[in-house]
Design a binder for these strands. Structure first.
Lengths: 349, 349
DNA sequence: CTGTTAGCGCTTTCAC
DNA sequence: GTGAAAGCGCTAACAG
């Protein structure tokens, strides 16, 4: 039977009445079917079908039960960027794996960068949160803290009351920097933005304490150690800051570096995408990789293998899964996520 | 103040009491702040801060208001496949655009292919559903129908009570088939699976009425028209069915076709990914494209431009957005989504 | 501008 | 195996 348009929602009480049983028997039919006699159950189901009952009201059930069966995911800034970044997509896939296993829904929260983002967080009907890496001063972090539900941050910042899943970015940057900068005279870095203003530009020896994205900060610190390990002062190192993790922007920044008076002979990039842009720029101006220019990336995505790029391998998918497990109540592992250096032909020796 | 672990949730009533106002004044402070005097509002906010009130309980609010502020998305089968398919990701991004604009959350429902998937649909706290293209006999379709909330299907099947957003796949397949098969003696098709069993294999002249995925069925019918338009009987046409939309699987299927006794001289593929696999296989056996082998794709993703692939252009992102608008209550447009043929070097002339 | 009343639809007790 | 009562936390509707 179709429920006529505009009629009120059919309730469990109505179903129970038509079936000639108590509301509780009807409720059990849906929640503990084996606790109800076959006869009662079929009467309830028949009544439900006749009335077009759509099943227990999810919000009423959540209110009563105290949980929603849904995990909230906050991807930072414009929600749609998440879908443009292959690493973010892997991360989401990792969360999805766990949610699917556990029968949880996965609610991606609508972040736009506007002030009312925090309201959307506050009002989300979810049991826990996973927050994609952001800046120290992102108001979303405070909003999630205030809500007092299980929450985990990916990458950083590390804050009180929220868990953290991350690799040791500083150590990984130092390690990949050592490979990138080996034998180099003029190392350079192509960096993610330093703060939420996302100003792009070219400088030297960034003051890392002023960097507001913890992941970016730690990577810069690692690169700094790597350059100093080779006897070069950080103040000498050229840093090109890109506003986005985007090959095209990186290509143009790299073109500027490579055609300058003192072009770099080694470039460490913060993602494989960025490194791909750098390699394209190098080829365009006739540089040979790795002889004229060593290049390293980050993430070891499919591009890295294609391009023969030395890079930092990490599994965003596993990290997404780890985040989901914790946000769903599992005790967090105290261990940092794993990474390794993949050496390929884009670096010397 | 931290709320001690294990203590009960702070309620609006407690906040109101501490603030010395009625519950309604406290409620208005959150929902209609301008309707409350500055004094009352700040008392409420102070009390909330002191108690560590996390804001109105989302499920309670949804129950009372009758809506959740969340849109449900059903991606079919294992949820994580969605994130592996670039077109599906574009589609999700289109939904995300609209949700972000409207302040809606976007809940991706956990489908595993198991029988209890329909329970997850029934129990989802969402105001409407978007269903990614599936088979005629997918129980999810019936489950969504039964729930009587706004719902829209992408691609197909078209069913009573649910809206549909799709291009005219039959017409597009006929048009791209005409280009692919022009001048060909032995046209072939690399197809998506025919039903949910996803058996792969190579046959001829598939009986389209037995195909359970409507999008695949319509495309096959369009290709059939295209071959018949060139005077070739459908029964002669070799169809390689791949279980997944995956370049590697397509490559191996194409390799089989191309090394057979009567290798095809034109292959129409149902996605750019698949076409890319076909082109790789062709190159491996020394076929020249388009002279020895014409190839067409579908979707006009970034790969198509890179490979110079003739293809069907459509915007999954726009279609995702259109789905979201309808599922959020906007009147559906009666117009089908748009498509066009992009001719590039992978086809003759 | 503030408050009172009355539920939203369901499931957790606890009794039979 | 079944049922009655109680109330999850909140806000629409209406008075004042």
């Amino acid at each position: 039977m179709e429920r006529p348009v505009g009629s009120k929602r059919v309730t469990l009480a109505q179903v129970a009445e038509l079936a000639g049983v108590s509301v509780m028997t009807a409720s059990y039919t849906y929640n503990r079917p084996r606790r109800v006699s076959d006869e009662a159950r079929s009467k309830v189901l028949a009544a439900a079908a006749q009335l077009g009952y759509a099943g227990p009201h999810p919000s009423a059930r959540s209110l009563r039960r105290g949980s929603t069966g849904t995990l909230g995911v906050v991807m930072g800034e414009r929600l749609t960027y998440a879908f443009d970044d292959p690493q973010a997509v892997s991360f989401l896939a990792g969360i999805a794996d766990i949610c699917a296993d556990r029968g949880y829904g996965m609610t991606i929260l609508p972040i736009t960068g506007a002030a009312d983002d925090i309201l959307r967080i506050r009002d989300a009907a979810v049991d826990g949160f996973v927050v994609w890496t952001t800046s120290d001063d992102d108001p979303i972090i405070a909003a999630v803290q205030a809500i007092k539900r299980p929450a985990i941050v990916h990458g950083g910042p590390a804050v009180h009351g929220l868990g953290l899943v991350s690799i040791d970015n500083r150590a990984a940057a130092r390690a990949v920097g050592a490979v990138a900068f080996a034998g180099a005279k003029r190392p350079a870095v192509v960096s993610f933005p330093l703060d939420r203003n996302r100003v792009s530009g070219i400088t030297r020896g960034v003051d890392t304490t002023a960097v507001r994205f913890p992941v970016t900060r730690e990577r810069l610190e690692g690169y700094r150690q790597a350059t100093e390990d080779t006897g070069i002062a950080w103040g000498e190192v050229v840093i090109a800051v890109c506003a986005r993790n985007d090959a095209a922007e990186a290509e143009s920044a790299a073109a500027t570096l490579l055609t300058s008076a003192e072009p770099p002979d080694a470039i460490a990039a913060m993602s494989d995408q960025v490194a791909a842009g750098v390699m394209r720029a190098a080829r365009a101006v006739g540089r040979v990789i790795p002889d004229d220019l060593a290049v390293t990336g980050w993430d070891d995505g499919p591009v890295a293998a294609e391009l023969g790029l030395t890079t930092v391998a990490q599994s965003l998918r596993d990290q997404g899964a780890a985040c989901a497990r914790v946000a769903l109540g599992q005790k967090p592992s105290s261990q940092a996520a794993s990474w390794s250096i993949i050496r390929r032909g884009s670096t010397r020796h």
